[in-house]
Amino acid sequence: MSLTQEAVLAGIKEIVEEVAGIPAASIEMDKNFTDDLDVDSLSMVEVVVAAEERFGVKIPDDKVQDLVTVGDAVNFIVSAAK
């Protein structure tokens, strides 16, 4: 399955809004999960698991810490889904 960056970003916005209560409008590719969006390490796990289910990809535990920005997560998911 191939996913576009736009589609994944839209999905991540919905997930972060659902998990952390951050308005989707404020979520952009360059935002840092921790510093800009206040998504802490445990909420990040919830985001990752929701993204795995939604996009049908695997995001291993040792990769989660590399997903610093929204763009990191979007790009990881897009390439994992190829």
Partner: peptide, 12 residues
């Protein structure tokens, strides 16, 4: 302890 890994395993 690896907090994120344990959280994920416990919850899911």
């Amino acid at each position: 302890q690896q907090g994120q890994a344990v959280f994920r395993w416990a919850v899911y």
